[in-house]
Structures are given as C-alpha cells and as structure tokens.
C-alpha cells in the first residue's frame, strides 16, 4: 500500500548534464517498490509550483529503507529540486501504479532512452540478481543523442546482463537509433530461448517503434508510459491514454488475450504506467 511521507534527503548528485539522482529515506516505499512503479515527489511547502512530479523508482534498498530516483531538469519543479540538499526533506508518495511483469522463463530485452532508463535499471538489477540463466537471457539496449547523455552505463554493466548502446551522433556504440538494434536481438533470442518479452520506457516515438517491431515479430511488449499526473493515484482522470478494448480467455500461462475495435481512456497512473504495447492506441 502506498504511503505519503516527508522523506529525509540523503544524497543528491548530478550524473549527466541536467540529470540528477536523488536518494531519499523512505522505508515503507523502499519495502515494496517494484520496477515500473513510480513516486510522486514535491517540496514539502510547495504552492507554486503546486503539484507533485511523478518519477520512476530507480532503486529501492530494502535493507536501508532508501529509494533513488533520477530526474532531468525540464521545468519549474525540477529546477527547484536541483537546490535540494541532504539534510532537508521532500514529500514523497508511493509506490504507485502497476509494475512490469517479469516472467521466469524465456529471454527479455530492456530497451529505452532518456529518463525512461531508471525503471529499466531497476528491472535489469533484478534480472542480474536472478540465476545465471536469467542473467544471460537478458539484454539491455540504451539510446541517447550523444555519449554524455547515456545514463547509468556503469550500473548496467555491473548487473552482468548484456548492454548495448546507440547514439544519434555515433560518439558511442551503434551510430543511429537504438530501435535499429532491437530486431536482430529479438530474432537471436527467439531462436535460442523460444519466447522473448520486451520492456520499454522512453520517448513516445521510440516506444511506438518498439511496439511495432514487437507486434510484427510476434513478441510480447510492456511499455511504461509517461504523462503529466496531477494526483498520481487515479482520482483526477488527468493522465489518460487511449486504449483498445480487451478480451481474455484461460488462465495463467494458458491465457490468451486479444483486442476489440472499442476504444476508451485509461489512467496512466492507476491502470498503468505499464501497459501491454498492443493495448495502447499509438496514433492518438
């Protein structure tokens, strides 16, 4: 169950230009946060800006009761946040939303860019702690404009899963889009492990391309969406995304899902932020 706490700020550091990692002492949140879930963060006395900002949980240290979030300075709220110092407090509310669903079989590809990276790092670290077979069957693909905008590269390397990078300017890794790397990996992993599940978080255009590749390749894809969220817990109906109607038969691994022509809105914060990529209506 999510909680609202005034969390002591333990550490705050710039990890890339305009990107910061904030460490907060929030034991009830650290105890239950899962990859893909997020927290609503705001200054304890904020009136202007007023609303909390949603950030994916990047790490949850259950033993110490700490959580880490990574944010990019994009506006008034995040600009104010850069001034926060250890010793102060922040209001934090979470963990919120539905997490990624990790299957104990087959292979998985984690693909993302920008501030979509934090939930994927948490997922990669979870895979890295699993038996060797699971670690070996996990691939992380990260893209950025330039090398200095790649995030948490060493953290990903430490997890022991395969990491490949792509930059628009070719300064590191593949010269081009990260989505260029996806198809070959899917084919390779499919041949070796049978089933592949793709997890993605990042810019909408990238996620849409990933969703299309997965649909064409017949592999499952979970997308972690971002939207401005006034409340974060499902009451304001502000952060909706258009989705298809769904049908389902069977249970567990024998479950079959499909989609109908019907369209309606779902709340990113409460019904997501993780959705089946096929559920999302991408052209709206």
């Amino acid at each position: 169950m999510p909680s609202v706490i005034s969390a002591p700020i333990l550490a705050h550091r710039e990890v890339a230009p305009r990107h910061f990692v904030l460490t907060l002492h929030a034991p009830p949140i650290a105890a239950s946060a899962q990859p893909g879930q997020f927290v609503q963060v705001r200054g304890v006395d904020w009136v202007d800006p007023l609303l909390p900002r949603p950030f994916s949980v990047m790490r949850a240290h259950r033993d110490k009761g700490d959580i880490e979030i990574l944010y990019r300075v994009v506006g008034k709220g995040t600009a104010l946040m850069t001034r926060w110092q250890p010793g102060g407090n922040a209001q934090v509310f979470g963990p919120l939303g539905k997490p990624f669903q990790l299957f104990p079989y087959g292979a998985r590809v984690l693909i993302g860019g920008g501030v979509g990276i934090p939930p994927l790092l948490m997922l990669a670290e979870q895979c890295g702690r699993r038996p060797e077979a699971m670690r070996a069957a996990t691939v992380v693909l990260q893209g950025a404009r330039t090398a200095d905008q790649l995030l948490c590269v060493e953290d990903f390397q430490r997890t022991g899963v395969t990491l490949e990078l792509a930059t628009d300017d070719g300064s590191t890794g593949h010269h081009g889009l990260v989505t260029d790397l996806l198809k070959p990996h899917i084919s390779r992993l499919q041949a070796r492990y049978g089933t592949v599940e793709v997890f993605t978080c990042g810019p909408m255009a990238m996620m849409r391309a990933v969703a299309e590749t997965c649909r064409d390749g017949g592999v499952g894809c979970q997308v972690c969406l971002e939207a401005p969220m006034p409340c974060g817990f499902g009451v304001c109906m502000g952060c909706v995304v258009k989705v298809r109607g769904a049908w389902e038969i069977g249970q567990g691994s024998r479950r079959i899902k499909g989609w109908t022509m019907e369209r309606h809105y779902k709340r990113v914060c409460h019904d997501g932020p993780v959705f089946d990529a096929n559920e999302v209506v991408w052209d709206e």
Binding site: D48, P49, A227, P228, C236, M237, G238, V240
Partner: peptide
C-alpha cells in the same frame, strides 16, 4: 461519458487547469 482527449491538465501559477 468518455471525456475529452488529452492533454487534459496543465499546471499554472499556484494552480492547475483541467478539461476532463
């Protein structure tokens, strides 16, 4: 009612606009 298309909300000075 299905409601309005997004974006439905935006923050303003010490407040917010909504068109749910």
């Amino acid at each position: 009612r299905e409601g309005n298309p997004p974006p439905r909300v935006c923050e303003t000075a010490a407040g917010m606009l909504n068109a749910i």
